[in-house]
Design a protein around this nucleic acid. Structure first.
Ligand code: FES
Ligand code: FES
Lengths: 143, 143
DNA sequence: GTTAAAACATGATAAAAATCATATTTAAGA
DNA sequence: TCTTAAATATGATTTTTATCATGTTTTAAC
């Protein structure tokens, strides 16, 4: 469903949503210990996200990563798209060429409606939305 | 979500549900070309399923694999359990230790209800049920 | 300007998953 | 009984994914 990389990226982005701002940048080292993922690996992921403008960064001393208010309007699907590409989440559970209503695979009917709901939320809830849920205690950012 | 191996196994089992019987055994070679998966790889998977009595087999000439009427009462979850183990499908989308209602990860609320419905069907619809759907044209066995 | 702290870029290694290969056992049929 | 066709068992190889390592660039502070 989601690659390990995407999971890491999502955790990191949500961590930034809660703990960073234009003025308060946070560096990989701190993110990686906070969300418990290998630093060098995470660095690579964050760089990809930064290049695609999903997150923001500044180099040098006092530098680090952060989410601009614009970044907060992105969705987790944007994150996933950058890390995993578009096809992974949209492909058929049985890896058919195309998940197609005209010729659904045997599992299509029990997964498709359900999966669309998931995808819908991923591309309609903003990162800000998720961070608000965490702040209000509806969900929790994993250690 | 599902490993490649599970996908292959599911396709093979459903193929057997439609095309085999106690008297009409079918050999890996034929299954593998029909569902388009590497023969040697599939052989290994079928042997695991056979050992766990999810499918039936007889050795030697005129031998092959088939589904007994008892086998038809199994569910696809039984297949998945053998190939992927129990934990894979039940684990948290963000790979938390435990997918836990008390401390749900940020994605829990958008994936959990959805996933449970999927799992429910996997463990309550029999292989026979799926084969009937395919026979009646509701779904299609992938090439 | 020099230094140092950070991201950035690139490539090497390790681990896991998928795939392939080959020898052994079983049973049908001549 | 002998041959042959099938599953079974086991291990090797390849590919993908995850992880680690190291050098380069940018920028703040002195
Ligand atoms: S065709 Fe397989 S999930 Fe839609
Ligand atoms: S806690 Fe992550 S999916 Fe339930």
């Amino acid at each position: 469903m989601l690659s390990n990389s995407s999971k890491y990226a999502i955790k990191a982005v949500l961590y930034l949503a809660l703990n960073s701002s234009e003025e308060k940048r946070v560096m990989v080292k701190n993110i990686s210990t906070a969300i418990n993922v290998p630093q060098a690996y995470l660095a690579k992921l964050l760089q990809e996200l930064s290049k695609e403008r999903i997150i923001s960064s500044v180099k040098g001393p006092k530098g680090g990563f952060f989410l601009s208010s614009l970044n907060l309007q992105n969705t987790l699907m944007d994150v996933i798209d950058v890390i995993d590409g578009k096809k992974r989440l949209n492909s058929c559970v049985l890896s058919l060429e195309k998940c197609d209503l005209d010729k659904p695979c045997p599992l299509h009917n029990i997964i498709s409606p359900v999966k669309h709901k998931f995808i819908y939320n991923l591309q309609n809830k903003t990162i800000k939305d998720f961070s608000l849920e965490i702040k209000s205690g509806i969900s929790f950012l994993p250690l």
